[in-house]
């Protein structure tokens, strides 16, 4: 089957019920999305499907209907997405394992709501868990990214 990931079309020979996360990591070597819980409870596997944050660990690849974007396609070390810039500015990451999912969820939030309040952020980001408890820095970075997007 064909899968569009980060602007590139891939032909993958997999069963339709394989989770998208497995296809991304094991077949296409996009290792940015992480395996955390495997049941959409932690958010580490978050990618975008047509720009909307989606948990890739429970989504069967045969049900993917749209373009997939992973953290690798959001920005690069040389050309970072505004959310990634804010993450660096606030030094959000501690161990870093959940951060690709956090950033994908945050960028999806800002697409839908360019000026989120603290409450808006808490509601939208509560499904993305961080065992290092970087939540205050995540919230601050999202506010910074929102302000920069407004200036841009």
């Amino acid at each position: 089957m064909r899968l569009n990931v980060n602007g590139q079309t891939h032909e993958v020979d997999v069963q339709e019920d394989m989770p998208l996360l497995w296809v991304l990591r094991d077949e296409l070597n996009y290792t940015g999305p992480k395996f955390g819980c495997g049941i959409a409870m932690c958010g580490a596997c978050t990618v975008h499907i047509d720009g909307v944050a989606t948990r890739s660990c429970t989504l069967q690849v045969g049900d993917v209907d749209g373009e997939v974007t992973t953290i690798e396609g959001l920005g690069t070390p040389d050309v970072q997405h505004i959310v990634q810039q804010a993450w660096v500015e606030h030094q959000v990451a501690q161990c870093g394992y959940c951060q690709p999912g956090q950033i994908m969820q945050a960028s999806s939030l800002l697409d839908a709501n360019p000026e989120p309040t603290d409450d808006d952020i808490d509601v939208a980001m509560s499904g993305n868990l961080c065992r290092c408890a970087t939540y205050p820095r995540i919230r601050a970075a999202i506010h910074t990214a929102a302000a920069k997007m407004k200036e841009a």
């Binding site: 495997g38 909307v52 989504l59 049900d63 499904g127």
Partner: peptide, 16 residues
């Protein structure tokens, strides 16, 4: 307005 149900709830029940 918050977090779409579709972020986690897809088209087919999982087996897990």
């Amino acid at each position: 307005e918050t977090l779409p149900c579709s972020t986690c709830h897809g088209a087919q029940n999982g087996e897990v």
